[in-house]
Amino acid sequence: MKALVMKDLHVLRATLKYYLFLIMVFTLAMRSAGSIFIILYTAMLPYTALAYDERAHFELQATAMPYSWRDLVLSKYILGWLGVIVSLPISIAIALLCQYLGWGPFYIEQQLSALFSGVMLLAVCLPVMFRKGVEVGRVLNILMVLVVCTVAMMMFALLGEIIGNAVLLWLVVAAFAAAVSVASVKLSEKWYKKRIME
């Protein structure tokens, strides 16, 4: 499985360079709000990796190798989770820099709510990608990014008001994201297997 994730990172090498460029553009254009987009953008890397796979029909190669359907879908989730986790400190660093430059205040809640949105984005969109293919999925994705992010951030804010205690809030949110992700992986596995095997 590690080999599959590494393969995706190699595939995405060119994309990642472009990604560094985007970080700068977002930061300059949107000031501290741009730091949020970095996390959300990273959450979309698995779709790009999947697009490369689909173009090469890598699934035919992969199913000839000692991998289960779960391995194949899970590797894309891991890529996404790895992405959002790695981008979190980058995002915080940028937000702090923005604060230092007087471009806007820094709230850790902003970053954490983006992280939550990123994980939710993966959980909602990946099953659709696995079922419909990236090309169809991408169109839906743009809609879903807006909906999922709005809902997730609202939820985060709402829960924050209800719970009050920051640590408890993060625990509740993390548990919720984990539960949704587990269900999402299972759904992806089922849908992907069905699509390829037809």
Partner: peptide, 26 residues
């Protein structure tokens, strides 16, 4: 297995593919 068309993502090099195989087969 050798399939009728080789199916690796286009940006990979031989080194990357070897790494994938090394990590996949026991």
């Amino acid at each position: 297995v050798v399939l009728d068309t080789a199916n690796f993502p286009e940006t990979l090099t031989l080194k990357h593919i070897a790494a994938l195989m090394r990590g996949s087969y026991t």
